[in-house]
Design a protein around this nucleic acid. Structure first.
Length: 371
RNA sequence: GGAGAGGUAGCGAAGUGGUCAAACGCGGCAGACUGUAAAUCUGUUCCUUCGGGUUCGAUGGUUCAAACCCAUCUCUCUCCA
């Protein structure tokens, strides 16, 4: 079956929504934060650890799994779930973002048919098309597939963005036309950059195609926070209320709050796991860099208010030692903590929406977070 | 006792008359990271009241000028006795 979205409650004072998404691999509550597991693993964590921190849905990436180990290998394993021993919902990104992230500062070749890549592994020329992306995602057997889009850099001219938006719309249609998997849902992606008219056009045209959910893409690519929030506003208002909305690639705690306030249900981001490996931890008083000398003899947890495994059993001094020594256990503890922090944040957000206290919660959180 | 090699910033290691406060790596300190080409990348690392001051085992010397040349001393390592 396809996913099904149940809107439980809308916040009285904002566009924040509380809902449930039903999938073949279980339900999850929204708003939700989804850890990113690009190569069929959330870096350094086991599926059991993901469960322990309350994670209920994760991402994987079409482009990366296409190159390695190849979608046929995953398919032979029975799909992503058995392949990676994870029985919860999985969402696959289409590879569209890699048009942006891999082609940045390098020659890229975006044509009507698709995108010519050079493999980042061996330089081999590759062509990823909307049809191929959907086909690969079908074989990966994720619960939710994403349309193949272009994520243009920032800034870009209105003229370029208009062409890009039109092409992304055509790609969305092509992808939808070949998507036949009844057990997999497909999301459309709204683009349009900072341009209000293009966001509107992209959203309206995408919604006409009747996807199972809608994503907002093209944010957090270098624009200011204000611009990003406006991009969300300019997109969300044209999306139906009975389908989930997913803000792609956003995971800064404050951005999650701003997104929820604007009616976003789903978030994903590499930030918590990446900065964890690099020594940064979210705390209710803001981000800390655990490598800092001032934590050398700090025998308190990363965050006193946190209920994660790392905070329950280990001190800053110990985790600092591990991170400084580049021990993988340190990276794991930091990743567990940061993911739990964002997942707990969305849990608290959901409670606040249920009680019509979202704005109060948001203000209190930001007040603490910014010291 | 004999022969040889060598002592350069916290460590390793370039440099062998001026362009050297001294490459590079490590370590240290700090920063960045938003649909993961990220266990990556960036800055900084003698002292300073930012004018300058004091460094290349030690002490003398040659020179306009020495980490670099000469003398003596000292320490380390290798080989032979």
């Amino acid at each position: 079956m396809k996913i099904k979205y149940t809107l439980l409650k809308k916040d009285e004072k904002t566009d924040a929504r509380r809902g449930i998404l039903h999938t073949n691999h279980g339900d999850f509550d929204t708003p939700i934060f989804m850890p990113v597991g690009t190569q069929a693993t959330v870096k350094t964590l086991s599926p059991e650890e993901l469960k322990d921190i309350g994670s209920s849905v994760i991402l994987a990436n079409t482009y990366h799994l296409w190159l390695r180990p190849g979608e046929l290998v995953v398919s032979k394993a029975g799909g992503l779930h058995p392949f990676m021993n994870y029985d919860g919902p999985i969402l696959t990104d289409s590879g569209g973002f890699q048009v942006f992230s891999l082609a940045k500062n390098k020659k890229k070749d975006i044509v009507e048919e698709g995108v010519h890549f050079k493999s980042h592994l061996d330089g081999k020329p590759l062509l990823l098309t909307p049809e191929l992306s959907i086909e690969i995602q079908n074989k990966l057997d994720s619960d939710i597939a994403m349309s193949f889009d272009e994520c243009p850099p920032y800034p870009v001219t209105h003229e370029y963005m208009e062409k890009s938006v039109e092409r992304t719309l055509r790609w969305a249609k092509r992808g939808k036309d070949v998507h036949k998997n009844e057990n997999q849902s497909l999301f459309g992606i709204v683009q349009g950059g900072e341009f209000e008219d293009l966001r509107k056009h992209s959203a309206i045209e995408t919604v006409k195609m009747n996807f199972d959910g809608y994503s907002i893409g093209g944010t957090s690519v270098g624009e200011s926070k204000e611009t990003m929030y406006k991009m969300i506003d300019d997109s969300v208002k044209y999306l139906p209320t009975d389908k989930p909305r997913y803000l792609m690639g956003v995971g800064d705690p404050i951005d999650i709050l701003e997104g929820v306030q604007r009616g976003i249900d789903m978030f994903d981001c590499v930030l918590p796991t990446r900065i964890a490996r690099h020594g940064n931890a979210f705390t209710k008083h803001g981000k800390i860099n655990i490598r800092n000398e001032k934590f050398k003899e700090d025998f308190t947890p990363l965050d006193e208010a946190c209920d994660c495994y790392a905070c329950k059993h280990y001190t800053k001094a110990y985790i600092r030692h591990l991170i400084v020594c580049e021990e993988s256990f340190g990276q794991r503890l930091m990743s567990i903590h940061n993911l739990r922090f964002l997942i707990k944040l969305t849990e608290d957000i959901r409670k606040s929406i249920e009680q019509d206290q979202f704005l109060e919660f948001k203000d209190a959180f930001i007040h603490n977070y910014k010291k």
